[in-house]
């Protein structure tokens, strides 16, 4: 009863959480210096930071940003499809 009715909100929360977690930056930077063992703690955001501001590769960093945008847009598209089905 309750769970099917809140399905949309649950999907929205899941999507927002995915979008937020994909942008994780401070935690890997502080806890694992961004890398960890064999880059196991590197987040996309940290990779962008590393490319753009340490390896002097702003173009690469911007490209990574675009890739991230596309991936996140994919998650949003899933959410939009879920919403559309309901109507």
């Amino acid at each position: 009863m309750t769970i099917p009715q809140t399905r949309l909100i649950l999907a929205l929360l899941a999507m927002l959480q995915i979008v937020a977690t994909m942008q994780l930056f401070i935690e890997p930077l502080i806890l694992a210096n961004g890398a960890g063992a064999e880059d196991s703690a590197t987040s996309v955001a940290y990779l962008i930071y590393q490319h753009g501001f340490f390896q002097n590769d702003l173009n690469g960093a911007a490209a990574l940003g675009v890739i991230m945008l596309v991936v996140l847009a994919g998650f949003s598209a899933v959410y939009v499809r879920l919403t559309a089905k309901q109507d």
Binding site: Q23, V44, A45, Y49, L58, G65, V66, L72
Partner: peptide
């Protein structure tokens, strides 16, 4: 609003 803040960091910095 659809664009995550992290994506904009580089263009914004430039």
């Amino acid at each position: 609003l659809m664009i995550p803040a992290m994506v904009l960091i580089v263009p914004q910095y430039v």
